[in-house]
Design a binder for these strands. Structure first.
Length: 138
DNA sequence: ATGCGGGCGGCCA
DNA sequence: GTGGCCGCCCGCA
């Protein structure tokens, strides 16, 4: 475990979304993380919020994140949003897998990094997939 | 404006 | 259980 502290902080420098509609007090993490998520936040911000709330040792799917962020149907957007995270981000991006609970195919190095991180927090695999027991249900 | 490619997902062979 | 086809929605030529 060591230092897990998945706060709501992920080195959000500048959103490539352009829309700087405000990003003021993101008080605490989004505890509710329901679809009732207040919309002053940009889509990317809401997505970050949800991911930041995923417990250590658990995973969620892209579609699930979208759903929880109040953006049903935005699964792919979640993926592209994560691909834009800054290098030093503390957002637990590695806890997001596809609906089949497999690590989404992309740069092999990134994939290995994700698997390593998950294993480090105790997540177990069944073949290529994360065992169901580690699938987070909000 | 239009087209195309993504860290996806649900359905149906 | 797999694999292929669309459908979704966005960002960037």
């Amino acid at each position: 475990m060591g230092m897990a502290k998945n706060s709501n902080n992920q080195g959000i420098g500048k959103d490539s979304n352009g829309h700087h509609k405000y990003s003021g007090g993101v008080r605490g993490a989004i505890q509710g993380n329901n679809a009732d998520t207040p919309p002053q936040l940009s889509k990317a911000e809401r997505i970050w919020q949800v991911i930041a709330s995923v417990p250590e040792g658990q995973v969620v799917s892209y579609g699930q994140v979208a759903q929880l962020a109040g953006l049903p149907g935005y699964a792919r957007f979640v993926g592209s949003t994560l691909s834009k995270l800054p290098q030093g981000s503390t957002l637990p991006w590695h806890r997001v897998v596809n609906a089949s609970l497999e690590i989404a195919p992309r740069n092999s190095g990134r994939m290995r990094e994700q698997k390593r991180r998950l294993r480090d927090e105790g997540v177990m695999f069944k073949g290529q997939r994360v065992a169901k027991a580690f699938h987070w249900t909000a």
